[in-house]
Deep mutational scan, measured.
Amino acid sequence: SELMNSSKLIRMLEEDGWRLVRVTGSAHHFKHPKKPGLVTVPHPKKDLPIGTVKSIQKSAGL
Rank of each mutant, 00 (worst) to 15 (best):
K31I: 08
S6N: 02
G17C: 06
W18N: 00
E2D: 14
G51W: 13
S7E: 13
V39W: 01
V41F: 04
S1R: 04
H43Q: 02
K8Q: 15
L38M: 10
L13D: 00
K54H: 09
L20H: 04
L20D: 02
Q57Y: 15
L13K: 00
S6R: 03
G51I: 08
G25Q: 13
A27E: 13
P33M: 09
M4G: 08
V53N: 02
P42A: 05
L13Q: 00
H32D: 00
A60R: 01
T40H: 10
I10N: 02
V23K: 14
L3M: 11
I50T: 10
K34Y: 14
T52A: 07
L3S: 12
V21S: 07
E15V: 07
I56K: 01
E15S: 09
R19E: 10
V21A: 10
G17L: 03
I56F: 01
S59W: 06
G17Q: 04
L9M: 09
G61D: 05
I50G: 07
K34P: 00
E14I: 11
N5A: 11
R22D: 10
D47W: 15
G37V: 03
G51S: 14
K54V: 10
K34S: 12
H32E: 00
K58G: 06
R22K: 15
H29Q: 14
I50Y: 09
H29L: 12
S1K: 06
P49E: 07
V21E: 07
E2F: 08
R19C: 09
D47C: 12
R19V: 13
K8R: 13
P42L: 05
K31E: 13
L48Y: 02
L13S: 00
K8F: 15
I50C: 07
G37I: 03
Q57A: 08
G17M: 04
V53Q: 05
T52L: 15
E2T: 10
P44Q: 03
G25N: 15
F30R: 00
A27C: 09
P44V: 04
H32N: 05
P42Q: 05
G61I: 03
S59V: 13
R19F: 15
V53S: 04
L13I: 09
M4S: 11
L62H: 03
N5W: 06
E2H: 11
K34Q: 12
F30D: 00
K31M: 11
A60E: 02
K54G: 05
S26L: 13
P33D: 11
T24C: 08
T52W: 07
V23N: 06
K58S: 11
K31L: 13
T40W: 15
V53K: 02
L3T: 15
R11L: 10
P36I: 08
S55P: 02
S26N: 13
R19D: 07
I10Q: 02
D16S: 06
E14R: 13
L48Q: 01
T40D: 05
S55W: 09
L9F: 03
K8T: 15
L9I: 07
K45W: 06
H28L: 05
Q57M: 15
G25W: 12
K31N: 13
G17A: 03
L38N: 08
K45N: 10
P44S: 06
E15I: 09
G37A: 06
M4T: 15
P33N: 08
T52M: 14
E14T: 09
G51P: 06
